[in-house]
Design a protein around this nucleic acid. Structure first.
Lengths: 242, 242
DNA sequence: CAGTGGTCTAGACCACCTC
DNA sequence: AGGTGGTCTAGACCACTGG
């Protein structure tokens, strides 16, 4: 069989890997500036243009952010602009209100077949299951059930979660050093079960958006699996196709 | 009030505009190669690197496609790979079958408030309304209702549409010279009305994905408005968040 | 082989931010 | 003024395609 491995790796990709390694190791932390292109070029022994191309790709992947005149910064989920990066639900009238996350419960379990496959861990490994509601202007709109690998999120409790002001991903970033970089979603229409109906304040059977998400960190490692139930009477899932 | 207009436009963006102009004018047709970077650089009186950066952006926007050793080509909806560019519905089991489009009916009307606003045409202007079904392996999965500005799609008939083998957008591209470049979608969960239920072979009230799409051509000009009803029991809407 | 896009370099200058 | 990223140039060489 033919292999699809690239026959050749350009220098700027190798530099890119080195930068990612440094990010992964925590050498530069979220929100901070990384060294200037000149410094990186000297450090890696290449020209500035080559560093530039590596950084360009990482900026396109939302890992780094360039600010002219100031420097290049590590993207952080603390940045309010990152809030809607993974949440594509917006009000029909276009008003921009920051939703509030309300944790419901949180317990330990062992990974079953499906969770193990999705999170790429052995069956029976510890996982943490978390349920929460997202409220827009005080009204519940989203019910999330979140599965996390226990090893990565060691020590997560409902109480620490309740104290947190801000997004779940900013919480994960500071408390567990886990940076969510990209995600894949599978979306369907389903009927509300009793649980979802009660939580969202609608009748059982109401059509809801089912949004199943797998979120990845460095090296395409899955670190979160969640299933959301979105009430879409006054909100919609917005997507840009390019 | 402060203006958000850019205070300065780099050379490569001006070159990009010139390339887009040439594409728009039909100087280079879909599927064809555009002149080499060297030739373009000579024609516009800039260095190859500047042309390169302009082409890079157009390639990132899926307007052009680079093929090493061969040249740079105008993306065409005839390319089978473009089929799923705007259709994010995939089977749960991952099998890749090309769906078949079955036109149902097609009639003329005058634009109402909403259609006029979305398509950015005056109220009362002629529009064409088109309904069709998408079948996967012979089974109806999507019901689309499509609104088109009559001026652009002058002369569209159900019969010519029925003869066409291929995607709707490849039809639009060859028959009307309209190239769909990007789209925005609003997704919700709704209950199947009688029409949708009958067409898709499900009970009234079955949860369906409602996908409302506005599609744009050059200069961000809207040229299509459609509302789809997706049956998502064995298929799901796939989305990548980056 | 010649022609295409892809990479890499070195250097100059511009736009923006901060002190 | 001095630093950052952003643009532009010119030239060399590499990888891939097709005759």
């Amino acid at each position: 069989m033919a292999s699809n491995a690239p026959s050749f790796s350009p220098l700027y990709r190798q530099i890119k890997s080195l930068i990612v390694q440094a990010l992964e190791s925590g050498e530069w932390r979220p929100g901070e500036a990384i060294p200037s292109e000149q410094e990186l070029a000297a450090r890696f022994g290449v020209s500035q243009g080559t560093v530039r191309k590596a950084v360009d790709e990482l900026a396109a992947e939302n890992v780094l952010e360039r600010k002219q005149g100031k420097g290049t910064f590590v993207v952080s989920h603390h940045d309010p602009r990152q809030f809607f990066r993974f949440l594509r639900l917006v009000p029909d009238d276009g008003s921009l209100t920051q939703p509030q996350s309300v944790p419901l419960d949180c317990w330990r379990a062992k990974a079953g077949q499906e969770a193990a496959r999705v999170l790429q861990i052995p069956v029976g490994d510890p996982i943490i299951i978390l349920r929460r509601v997202l409220k827009f202007s005080g009204k519940p709109v989203v019910l999330d059930e979140i599965y996390l690998p226990g090893e990565v999120f060691e020590g997560l409790t409902l109480d620490t979660l309740k104290e947190w002001k801000g997004s779940l991903y900013s919480f994960f970033e500071t408390r567990f050093g886990v940076r969510m970089l990209r995600a894949e979603e599978r979306i369907r229409a389903v009927a509300a079960d009793r649980m979802a109906a009660e939580t969202l304040g609608v009748k059982e059977g109401t059509p809801l958006l089912s949004v199943e998400r797998v979120t990845y960190t460095y090296n395409d490692r899955p670190v979160e699996w969640r299933r959301g139930r979105y009430l879409t009477t006054q909100y919609h899932y917005h997507n840009e196709l390019t």
